[in-house]
């Protein structure tokens, strides 16, 4: 499993496509991802939005993430960094922001490589 992270619009998806030779058909979007499609894809983009969707459906993002990694151990996951701002006033946004942090820690721990993209430049921070 590989993890790619960084802020919004820093070139994470482009990096993944070029560096790991992924076809766009092999990429799922976290917003609309269905776990049944897991075997047909190589990459989940916007994983932070999948966390939001899982929370909205009262599912546990940590256990869902463990399941995804064990079902597809070669998956490439792209997740934004969203926790470096002011604590949101809205409770559901606070929970989402914190769950994205915890899920990101789990992904980074399980990943063989972690790359952080800033202004299109990738820095390998693990592996």
């Amino acid at each position: 499993m590989r993890l790619i992270t960084g802020g919004a619009y820093q070139g994470k998806l482009d990096f993944a496509i070029k560096n790991y030779n992924i076809n766009t058909a092999e990429i799922a979007n976290g917003e609309s991802f269905n776990i049944a499609d897991l075997s047909n894809i190589r990459c989940i983009n916007n994983y932070h939005l999948l966390v939001k969707k899982l929370l909205e459906n009262d599912e546990n993002p940590i256990s869902a993430t463990s399941e995804i990694i064990s079902e597809n151990p070669d998956i490439i996951i792209i997740i934004n960094e969203i926790g470096s701002g002011i604590i949101p006033l809205e409770k559901s946004e606070r929970i989402w922001r914190e769950q994205v942090g915890k899920v990101g820690c789990l992904l980074a721990e399980k990943a063989d490589t972690v790359e952080r993209i800033t202004c299109g430049i990738a820095v390998r921070i693990k592996g």
Binding site: E81, I82, G83, S84, I87, R97, E98, Q99, V100, G101, K102, G104, C105
Partner: peptide, 8 residues
Amino acid sequence: ITGGSKNG
């Protein structure tokens, strides 16, 4: 030590 929320 710095970093975002729940980043360890």
